[in-house]
Design a binder for these strands. Structure first.
Lengths: 146, 146
DNA sequence: CCTCCATCGTTGACAACCTCCACGATACCG
DNA sequence: CGGTATCGTGGAGGTTGTCAACGATGGAGG
């Protein structure tokens, strides 16, 4: 027999998750504004920088949890800014690999410092062990749906 | 001396937070669709249900982490659906208290079951102790900025 | 080889959301 | 009484989310 108390919204994980996320996105966005980037663009740029061989837009969408059509615009903007390039792939001419330009790597490096610094305020009450635990839990939430 | 390794995006707490949040919001939204609600409306309705005396829109905005102008629309929609009412406050005639109607309480109760059920999938890999710990951390992230 | 079907990127449309600014009404303080 | 602050509201402009299509390419099977 399960008792169903009306749990306050302040205890609802979904609510807490989206509120905290909004807070962090806001902070990061204003930190990245000086570099002419938004978080989404920064995420794409980061993934492109990490993939030595480049990364397909399909995979970008999958990792970011976005609709592929959103990725198109993000890559368009990054390309216009000269931070990223679309390269043809020999094996499969449908996919276009997104690779970071040297300028892209530079910008991402300096932007990362500001982005990380901006995160320190909201995370100030969490120790390093807790952050690691938080990373682990958030990753599991993501993988739970596939 | 601090070593600055280029941390992968998959370890960035801001990124993990917004991705998990998006996932949960998506799941909850589709669960609430049958009740004619979106998460934001559901959150407002829940807060109105919890506050016996009603709650001001300013406070709603503050708790939800939203701009007050967004709350206006949400309350408008809930009012149109007959789930909530704006009541004048004697003490301060500027503020209008948002209170849930009997119908609002009923809808919120049945909607809550579906919303909670929808959360079970993304949270399936987390035990109850972990969820409690997650609640605590997310709350601290929120309070860290004020 | 040819046909059917899946996948990738892309476009367009539309709703939802966020941010900021401004206004009228009301409250509070001196 | 006058200045200042707060509450709700409205509007503009940009960003994001969702969905349905389309052309181009790839792959499997007859």
């Amino acid at each position: 027999m399960e008792v169903h108390m009306s749990q306050p919204l302040a205890d609802d994980l979904g609510f807490l998750l989206s509120r905290a996320s909004g807070q962090v996105v806001r902070a990061t966005n204003s930190a990245l504004a000086g570099h002419g980037l938004r978080v989404r663009q920064y995420s794409v740029l980061t993934l492109a920088c990490q993939a030595a061989e480049g990364i397909s837009q399909r995979e970008l969408a999958s990792v970011l949890g976005l609709d592929p059509s959103q990725v198109v615009l993000l890559v368009d903007e990054l390309t216009a800014a000269g931070l990223v390039e679309r390269q043809a792939q020999e094996a499969d001419r449908r996919t276009r690999l997104v690779v970071a330009t040297p300028e892209g790597h530079r910008v991402r490096e300096t932007a990362r410092e500001d982005a990380d610094a901006a995160m320190e305020t909201p995370l100030s009450l969490l120790g390093e062990a807790e952050r690691e635990r938080l990373r682990d839990m958030l990753t599991r939430i993501w993988t739970a749906t596939g």
